[in-house]
Amino acid sequence: MAVEMAYSELAAPVDLNHPGHYVHWGVVQISVANLVVIGLMVLVFVAAVLLPFPKGRGRR
């Protein structure tokens, strides 16, 4: 009983255990979750390349 209480208290606010969403594009079938992860990777890569890196103090 106590265990079940703790279980519900620690339940995730965003429950991803619902039936998954999928994108179909020709031969490609990909879950929205995987697509989000891959999209974020590309986004973070582009940001890492483009955003200016803070200049260090006292060079040379």
Partner: peptide
């Protein structure tokens, strides 16, 4: 045939 190996149950990201 659903690209199952890289998927996960529910809406979780899998082994992309």
């Amino acid at each position: 045939d659903q690209w199952g190996m890289m998927n996960e149950t529910g809406n979780y990201p899998g082994q992309a």
